[in-house]
């Protein structure tokens, strides 16, 4: 419920929950000697992850990389996802700490940026990473050009399975040049010795009001409509179709129209990741949040694109973000460590 609260106000109702993770090709993970079942349950540190994705790289006789260890979509808006998903487990779970100080000025942020650059410099991620969009990274997974891809969602298991079935049936609508691939859900690594904090997405229904004050009856009716849509068999079926976890007990217990085959290990991994989900922050004022979004769009994302393209160093990006944060929130409004 906290994901739809601002202060004490409840402005909507949650319907389902999903974890933004990463996912690997089972065969390639095993060839690289990665104990993926252990990773699913116990997680991994950046150092372990770095070695794993190095081991996943395959080159041809001429030294050209034919398979990368890790590819994450970072083109355009997806670059925001890449950084924020990794930042959650780098000691930066939110833009603001409990004292409402901007956190991306801490040394943890610099450490994360250095790791992001290292993975490309190692050759584990493509140097053209800044242009890899969501479609391309999934295509690279299905065509065997990467061992691990991100971001990952539970539904990707089904997408890979459906493509496998098409390949087996010699169906022309299978992704061109794709190979059979079993999708293994994995948690993102932890950076800077921080705890694992998954990126949790909770979607649902929100109510907006106009200039005119709504009547009590109108508010009551809106709440009833939202409740109907976010619970029971309605929520159960669309959550099931999209491999999401319904929030309400009535939806979790409701019968669904169609059952889909699931990988038991992935189910357990999803549950393990969801168990680590943290409650949403409801104490961040909208003005602070809006200013953070502005820094994100005008400074963080553009600088990250430049960092990925090897046009600036992690230190230069860190300095630019820090300068923008100090300008917006003042010296006292940012974390200094």
């Amino acid at each position: 419920m906290q994901y739809f609260q601002l202060g004490d106000g409840q402005y909507g109702l949650p319907a389902y929950m999903a974890i933004h993770s990463i996912g690997g090709n089972r065969q390639f993970l095993e060839e690289a000697g990665i104990d993926w079942r252990s990773v699913q349950q116990n997680g991994w540190t950046y150092d372990e992850f770095r070695e794993a994705i190095k081991a996943g790289v395959v080159k041809d006789a001429s030294g050209e990389t034919t398979r990368y260890g890790f590819v994450f979509a970072t083109a355009g808006v997806t670059s925001k996802d890449y950084l924020s998903i990794m930042a959650k487990s780098a000691g930066l779970p939110e833009y603001f700490d409990e004292n409402l100080k901007f956190t991306y000025t801490s040394k943890n942020f610099l450490g994360l940026l250095e790791a992001i650059r290292e993975m490309i410099d190692d050759g584990s991620m493509p140097k053209e990473l800044s242009s890899i969009d969501a479609g391309k990274r999934w295509n690279m997974f299905l065509t065997g050009q990467t061992m691990i891809t991100g971001k990952g969602l539970a539904s990707f298991e089904n997408s890979a399975r459906l493509n496998n079935e098409k390949i087996q049936a010699n169906d022309g609508s299978a992704v061109a040049d794709s190979i059979e691939a079993e999708y293994i859900a994995l948690p993102v690594p932890t950076f800077n010795g921080a705890d694992y904090v998954p990126t949790t997405v909770v979607d649902g229904y929100i109510a907006l009001r106009g200039k005119k004050e709504p009547t009590e009856q109108h508010i009551h009716n809106i709440a009833l409509a939202m409740h109907y849509l976010s619970s029971g068999s309605i929520a159960a079926n669309y959550s099931n179709e999209l491999f999401l976890s319904p929030i309400t007990e009535s939806a979790r217990n409701a019968e669904v129209l169609e059952e889909y085959p699931r990988n038991e290990d992935n189910l357990k991994a999803d549950q393990a990741m969801m168990d680590k989900a943290v409650a949403a922050r409801t104490d961040i004022p909208t003005e602070l949040a809006a200013e953070a979004i502005k820094i994100e769009t005008e400074v963080i994302v553009p600088k990250l694109q430049a960092l990925l393209a090897d046009e600036i160093t992690p230190q230069e990006m860190y300095d630019a973000v820090k300068a923008a944060a100090v300008k917006s929130f003042g010296e006292d409004g940012v974390v200094v460590d």
């Binding site: 355009g76 670059s79 979004i293 694109q305 430049a306």
Partner: peptide
């Protein structure tokens, strides 16, 4: 390009759009 990388292709029209519909 979404205006990137590092605002290398941010045009005035895109900036106006961002100011209006992002912020």
């Amino acid at each position: 390009t979404g205006g990137g990388p590092d605002h290398a292709t941010t045009m005035v029209g895109l900036l106006i759009f961002n100011n209006a519909f992002t912020y």
